[in-house]
């Protein structure tokens, strides 16, 4: 039986066993490959997406358990129309290999939605589940603070 999901505002009927994690539905079935596989056990954050605005590890959410609208990095912004946070990432030249950055950005976007003016401690607490082997953390921190500033000016 197909499961209906709303992803980045578009409805999809997915014909896969209900225990398949959302990550693998997005990547292999829908073709949204911006969301990455890093560990499969919620230890690295590369697969972070939003469900109803909440940051979740998509490798741990079974298809049957997706409780709301899914937003992936592709739904946050596009190369021609980047979200404010993505523009901050560009301005701070954050990414190196880039593989973890979709997850970093989705997690940071959820942080800023909850905590518009995060302290260093807030950033530490929210972002420590997102691993980056290139060590882009100092620039991620700077980009989050910059994005917070810009978002506060936009509203």
């Amino acid at each position: 039986m197909a499961t209906r999901l709303t992803i980045n505002g578009t409805a999809h009927d997915v014909d896969l066993p209900e225990n398949v994690p959302l990550l693998w539905v997005l990547r292999d079935e829908i073709g949204l490959t911006g969301t990455k596989f890093g560990c499969g056990v919620a230890a690295c954050g590369a697969c972070t997406v939003h469900i109803d605005g909440e940051a979740v590890r998509s490798c741990q959410v079974a298809l049957a358990d997706v409780w709301g609208e899914v937003t992936t990095i592709e739904g946050l912004g596009t190369p021609d129309a980047m979200a404010t946070i993505q523009q901050a990432w560009v301005d701070h030249q954050v990414a190196q290999c880039g593989y973890c950055q979709s997850g970093q950005i989705m997690n940071a976007a959820a942080l800023l939605a909850q905590t518009p003016d995060p302290t260093d401690q807030d950033i530490d607490d929210a972002m420590q589940g997102n691993l980056c082997r290139c060590g882009t953390y100092p620039r991620i921190r700077a980009a989050i603070k910059d994005a917070a500033q810009r978002l506060s000016e936009e509203t």
Partner: peptide, 19 residues
């Protein structure tokens, strides 16, 4: 310091890795 040519792709999920 030049804007990295791979940056926009990597922050929008459009840069392609082998996987």
């Amino acid at each position: 310091s030049m804007p990295r040519l791979d940056m926009v792709g990597k922050v929008t999920g459009t840069a392609k890795f082998a996987t």
